[in-house]
Each structure stands twice: as C-alpha cells, then as structure tokens.
Lab assay of single mutants.
Amino acid sequence: IRKQWHEDITQDLRNHLVHKLVQAIFPTPDPAALKDRRMENLVAYARKVEGDMYESANNRAEYYHLLAEKIYKIQKELEEKRRT
C-alpha cells in the first residue's frame, strides 16, 4: 500500500537507513566489507527490517522512530551478549 508520506522518502534515504541498521549490527569502518558475501545476508535482513517499518509506519516521524527503536534494541542486545 502506497502511503502519501512515501512520496517524500527517496531511495537514497532508504538505502542510507538500511546502511545505518547494518552498522548497528556489524560496525565496520571498511566499506569494502559490505561487498563481502557474508554481509549479503546481513544487508538483506536490514532491508527487510527497513521495508517492514516503511510499510507499517503511518508517517515519516513514525518511520524514523521505529528504525531508531530497532537500532537501539539491536545495540542493547549486542552489548548484553558482549558482557556474558
């Protein structure tokens, strides 16, 4: 379902936000690492998460909020795993 606010969101912005999700899960300073085949699954997962939020959000603010919440949860989980 195409929503009115979707018209304001460019593909570049969506790609940028997918990249932010990927960085939250696997922070790497090396952009070449993103071309690694093992990263493809991670990028696919991040695209799916972003797509789900894009579809479920009712406006741009909610879209950003859902993504920020997801990134926060991912970082929290990773922190907890590092501690144990």
Rank of each mutant, 00 (worst) to 15 (best):
K35P: 15
H16I: 07
E69F: 00
P29T: 14
A32S: 11
Q75W: 00
N58Y: 03
V49S: 02
K73F: 05
L13N: 08
Q11I: 03
K70V: 02
L66V: 02
N15L: 02
T28M: 10
A68Y: 14
M39W: 11
P31Q: 11
L78D: 12
Y64N: 12
H6K: 13
L78C: 12
R83P: 13
Y45F: 08
N59T: 14
I71N: 01
A24S: 09
F26W: 13
R60D: 09
A61V: 10
K20W: 01
K70M: 06
K73Q: 14
I9P: 01
N15C: 01
L17G: 11
H16C: 03
I25E: 04
Y63F: 06
L17I: 11
E79V: 09
Y72A: 15
F26C: 15
N41E: 10
N15P: 04
E50L: 03
N41R: 09
Q23Y: 07
A46R: 02
P27K: 07
A24W: 02
V22P: 00
R60G: 04
Q23R: 10
A68I: 00
K3N: 06
L42C: 08
L13I: 14
I9V: 04
Q23F: 00
L21P: 04
Q23E: 10
I74Q: 03
R38W: 05
I71C: 08
V22Y: 02
E62D: 01
R47S: 08
K35A: 11
E40V: 07
A32T: 12
K48F: 00
E62A: 02
K70F: 10
V18L: 03
P29H: 06
A61I: 06
P31Y: 08
H65N: 10
M39Y: 14
Q11Y: 05
L66I: 02
T84H: 15
I71L: 09
H19C: 07
V49A: 04
L21M: 09
A61F: 03
Q11N: 11
R83Y: 08
W5H: 09
E55K: 08
G51E: 13
Y63M: 00
A57N: 15
V43S: 03
E77I: 07
I9R: 00
E80N: 11
K76Q: 11
L34G: 13
E80C: 06
A33S: 11
L13W: 09
L42D: 01
R60H: 06
V49D: 06
T84E: 13
E40M: 09
K35R: 12
I9G: 02
K20T: 05
I71K: 08
Q4F: 01
N41I: 01
A24F: 03
A68Q: 14
E40D: 11
T10M: 04
R37A: 13
L17S: 14
R38M: 06
W5I: 03
E62L: 02
W5K: 11
D30A: 12
N15I: 02
R14Y: 06
R82A: 12
Q4N: 15
Y54F: 13
A32E: 13
E80S: 06
L78H: 14
R37H: 12
M53Q: 02
L13S: 08
N41A: 08
H6V: 01
A33D: 10
K73V: 14
V22S: 04
L21F: 05
E7R: 07
N15W: 03
E77L: 06
I9F: 08
A61P: 10
A46P: 06
E77Q: 10
M39G: 08
K70R: 08
Y72W: 09
R82P: 11
H19L: 08
H16G: 12
V18H: 00
A68C: 09
S56Y: 14
R82M: 07
V49H: 00
I74H: 14
E77F: 09
E80P: 09
P29L: 11
L66G: 11
A33Y: 12
H65D: 12
P27H: 14
V49G: 01
L78G: 15
A33C: 09
T28R: 08
A24E: 03
Y45L: 06
P31N: 14
V49C: 11
P27A: 11
R83K: 13
L13R: 05
A44F: 04
D36M: 05
G51V: 07
D36P: 10
N59R: 01
L17A: 15
D8W: 05
L34S: 10
R38Y: 10
V43W: 11
H16T: 10
A24N: 03
E50G: 00
L66M: 14
M53P: 02
V43I: 14
L66N: 12
A68L: 06
I9H: 00
E69T: 07
H6F: 08
L21A: 01
R82I: 11
L67D: 05
L67C: 14
V18G: 08
R2E: 08
G51L: 12
L21I: 15
Y64P: 02
T28V: 10
Q75C: 03
L67E: 00
S56Q: 15
N58M: 04
H65I: 01
I9L: 06
I71W: 00
A24C: 00
N15Q: 08
I25A: 13
R82N: 07
L42N: 03
H65V: 01
A32C: 11
I9Y: 00
T84D: 14
L66A: 08
Q75D: 04
E62T: 04
H19Q: 11
Y64H: 12
E7G: 09
R38A: 10
R37W: 09
R37I: 07
L67V: 13
R37M: 05
E62F: 00
K35V: 12
E50D: 02
E55S: 08
H16N: 07
E40G: 06
E80H: 05
E55F: 08
A33I: 08
E69G: 07
K81T: 07
K20D: 07
Y63I: 00
E50F: 03
E7S: 08
R60T: 10
A61S: 09
I25S: 10
R2S: 11
N41P: 09
K81M: 06
Q4V: 07
R14W: 04
T10Q: 01
D12Y: 04
